[in-house]
Simulated assay, not measured.
Amino acid sequence: MYRFLLSRQWVILTLVALLLIPTMIRLGIWQMHRYEERTARNQLVSDALSSAPVPVERMTSPGHVVTRDERYRNVSATGRFDTSREVVVRRRVNADEAVGFHVLTPFVLTDGKVLLVNRGWVPADAPTQTAFPKVPAPPAGRITVTGRLMPDETTAASGIKDLKGLPDRQVMLINSEQEARRLGAVVLGGYIALTSPAPRGDTPQLIGRPGDEDAALNYAYAIQWWLFSAAVPVGWVVLVRRELRDRRESAQEQAERTEPAAV
């Protein structure tokens, strides 16, 4: 009665089932790895955000590439804002998904080096998107600022094209190497997203804290794939038993039809 398993249809079905089981197990393992990676990243970000501020030059230097472990670390710096060479970063959105600009202001340290400070978001309130927006001035004179250390933006990492021929004092990316060439100064690698002092008015709006990635979904997907892999052999057995039952019923009906009638 099990010879039907050697038929072309059942051989193909069995091979597909045998391929699905390890594939689904591997997909579950991949999702579990994603869960572990996101959990570790969330912990790394949480630790960085809760860290005590340290002098910025302990974390970065000219030409330094901010690492994953250094990202979001709280740093402080003392100096003055140079608004005469301030630029805005185009096509940035705030928490309400409104399109505007980020304000990038050079901060001249006491030793003459420059730290790039993202002072926050301002709306594109000018008649056109190409016009320079209204930017509130930062505190004047020598002050101490704190912020979250961030790596240089690149097209590869952000997906933002670094367009050329932009209006005066507008850029697409926050990149310390580009700004060093524009300013003709020694610029620390990366930049900071300002957290203190807070703006005096509604703008610039400070850049919000990064949120946690939802790692729980990856955990759920891993369990789901493993359940699917367990369901495949169960489903195969159910189909075999159903086919066997149908064949037995069909054989019994055939036998009844061919049985001689009683005299």
Rank of each mutant, 00 (worst) to 15 (best):
A17Q: 12
E97V: 06
R209V: 11
I143T: 04
V54C: 01
V187A: 01
L166H: 08
T39N: 06
Q178L: 04
A193D: 12
T258R: 13
G165H: 13
N218M: 08
R200A: 13
R58K: 15
D125W: 07
G100E: 00
S158V: 00
K134E: 14
S50D: 08
E177R: 04
R245W: 00
R26P: 09
A230I: 06
R241L: 13
V65K: 09
A95V: 12
E36W: 05
L19F: 11
V135W: 04
R242H: 10
R182P: 05
R209L: 06
L149Y: 02
Y221A: 01
A124Q: 13
R8G: 01
R247Y: 04
L188F: 08
I160R: 03
R247L: 04
S7V: 09
D47V: 14
Q254M: 11
L109Y: 06
R248L: 09
G184T: 07
R247I: 07
T203Q: 14
H33I: 13
F81E: 12
R38Y: 06
L217F: 04
L6T: 15
V263N: 08
I207M: 10
S51Y: 07
L19D: 10
A157T: 13
S84R: 03
L44G: 02
G79T: 07
E70W: 01
F228A: 07
L217Y: 01
F101Y: 07
S250A: 15
V122R: 12
G165D: 03
W30G: 01
V263M: 11
L116M: 09
R241N: 04
P62K: 02
Q129V: 15
T130I: 05
S158D: 05
V93Q: 09
R119L: 10
R248M: 07
G100W: 06
Q252C: 11
E36I: 07
R91N: 13
R257C: 04
W30I: 03
G120D: 02
T128V: 10
M24L: 15
T144V: 10
A180G: 10
V75H: 11
V122I: 04
V171K: 00
G112T: 05
D214K: 10
G184S: 02
P139E: 02
A52K: 15
A230Y: 11
G165E: 05
L19I: 11
S196Q: 15
G141W: 02
T39C: 06
D82P: 11
Q31A: 09
N74C: 14
K134A: 15
L163P: 09
V117D: 03
G63F: 12
V114H: 00
L18K: 09
A255N: 04
R26W: 09
R41N: 12
K134H: 08
I12A: 13
A157C: 14
V135Q: 07
P199E: 03
F107E: 03
A230L: 14
D47P: 05
S51A: 10
L27M: 09
L244D: 14
R8Y: 08
E259Y: 14
V263Q: 09
R80F: 06
T105I: 03
L188Q: 06
V122C: 14
R71G: 01
V171A: 04
T23G: 15
L194D: 11
E179Y: 01
L244M: 06
I12N: 05
R257Y: 03
R38Q: 12
